[in-house]
Design a protein around this nucleic acid. Structure first.
Lengths: 141, 141
DNA sequence: ATACGTGCAAACGTTTTGCACATAC
DNA sequence: GTATGTGCAAAACGTTTGCACGTAT
């Protein structure tokens, strides 16, 4: 385990590429995108650096219900909505939910350090596509 | 894909074993437990039947932040607390959070069909073990 | 000079799938 | 008899690791 953190062009490029993204890229998406700039880039390097950036608090890993880990440069409190049709993950502001969570009485269960809310449904684009095909929409909650 | 559903001793045994569990077993835990009764049981069979039972609405897959899928026979609305030390998953009643979620204005994002809240922290047992060792507890939120 | 970072390939753990055989209906 | 369920092995998948080489400090 490194005791000191050094500069690396790959890490800098990964951060530059992901820092303004709002689409919660996966490691593989980072890899594919940066392969143009670094033809010999390794997926392992991408994973290692995404972990480093997460440890630094610059990224937040998000597990949105599918099995891939996504990485979010927006570290402010917010929640995620995943479209079950297209898999895309959207940001949702839900401060009231955060407040309700922090007000929870966990009783003897334990001490809360973090939480994540994953909303699921059909995004507007997919709903329109389904409508065009004449399919019934999934009923809302 | 089957059009008709037939009886199978394995599926019945899996359901009997899991139906009153409150510890959110993984497929492998089901497999290990039922191997005594069915020495030739296959993990694939367990996965297939857990999927069938989930499709039937008797189980609910829960993804609690670690990478394994757990299966919960409690299909009533409730949330989960995962201890980051021991990995155990506890049930938490949080109707106020559910209400806050359903009140959310998703704007143009899409239509909500489901949601899951995963709380994280240190369970009481682990906190006591840490305290006994003199370690500092992770600060609450 | 000494770590730390990289690329590659191999390993890993979980979940899925293809296939021949067994079983419910 | 026929479709569904099973066991086994292999594949698939996302992710991690071991190692020799490269590079920042």
């Amino acid at each position: 385990m490194p005791t000191e953190l050094r500069y690396s062009r790959q890490r800098a490029a990964i951060w530059e590429w992901i820092r303004n993204r709002r689409d919660h890229p996966t490691a593989d998406e980072v890899y594919v995108a940066l392969r143009e700039q670094f033809p010999h880039l390794s997926l392992a390097t991408v994973y290692r650096n995404l972990m480093v950036l997460s440890d630094q608090g610059k990224l937040r890993p998000v597990v949105a219900g599918d099995k891939v880990t996504r990485f979010d440069p927006n570290t402010a409190e917010h929640q995620h909505f995943r479209c079950t049709r297209c898999g895309r993950v959207f940001d949702v502001e839900a401060p009231e939910v955060g407040r309700a969570v922090r007000r929870l009485d966990l009783g003897t269960v334990g001490t809360l350090t973090d939480f994540s809310l994953c909303l699921e449904g059909v995004c507007t684009a997919c709903a329109q596509a389904l409508e065009a095909r004449g399919d019934a929409l999934a009923p809302g909650m």
